[in-house]
Amino acid sequence: MSDIQARLREIARRLLTEGHVRVFIGFGPGFEANRPVPFFAADPDAADRLLLDEFCAAGLARYVLEEVREGPVGLVARGCDGLGLERLLADHRVAREQLYVVGVSCRGVVDPDRACAAAGEEVRAARVNGETVTLITPTAERSFPRSACLLDKCLRCQDPTPRIADVLLGEAIPPGERDLAHVDAVERMPSDERYRFWARQFERCLRCLACRQVCPACNCVSCSLDRPEWLERGTGLAEQFMFHFTRAYHVAGRCVACGECERACPAGIPLGLLNDKFMKDLRDLFGVAAPHRPGDVEPLGKFCPDDPEGWHEGGEGT
């Protein structure tokens, strides 16, 4: 990655020096070495603080919404960031000419907590190579399976390389087909059990709105979830169902599966299971092959004359 990091800094420096962009969004050093944070390079020298490693977790697309207000923005984009940008572009929230996208292929981001649990001590560095991840700790260098080290969102990712990039650093990795089998497990529960499962998840919800605030699809100027006529501020179970139903439904057909909502949720609510249920039905009922990749018109903004009636085919456990 260090070679790519050097090229990234060089490009960012050039863009800032030549005035092509007002700010370059990437990652910079965090308080802890294995937790880099989003970083905004506003002058050419700041570009040298940009870093790119296996711990860069946060999604960057959402920042563009604020940052483009004052001028063109450059940013580094992994596959998930790229899809988020496509979402903002499809929603006409930003214009393509306002963005300079430096694409990189991402093989997965290491979760420092998960990696620490696997390695038994703090992880200083990591290398993601295919199905294994090498974790480097102060005392050892050992390999572990991906599932023991990476963020959940990365384990399900099939979009390692952004589709929109003005320049791509490194090799492109072809996209795959998202596996939505984790939805089946919930569908197979009896309905009362399924209700108890979700009630338990939603009861934990603090309503901090982190899921909405980090989401590139939740880019509305004003949100119905802030309006008491649509969602009361109380946190009784009925309102929690209303909140989670509305959040998921409002991104149905628009969610880019970047997994930021689930990563941000402090209560560990499996929000991806909600988003992916809509994806699965969009795929199965309306033949939208990859609903998370923005197209010309989102699937709920159009119809076919011979669409099936999903409510007949629905029903328990199917």
Binding site: S191, Y249, D281, P305, D307, G314
Partner: peptide, 22 residues
């Protein structure tokens, strides 16, 4: 109603997914 058909195909299945009886 063609939009309704798409929309409620998803919504009905989703409410069942949350545990509502069909």
């Amino acid at each position: 109603n063609l939009f309704t058909r798409r929309r409620f195909s998803l919504v009905k299945r989703f409410l069942e997914y949350l545990g509502l009886e069909p």
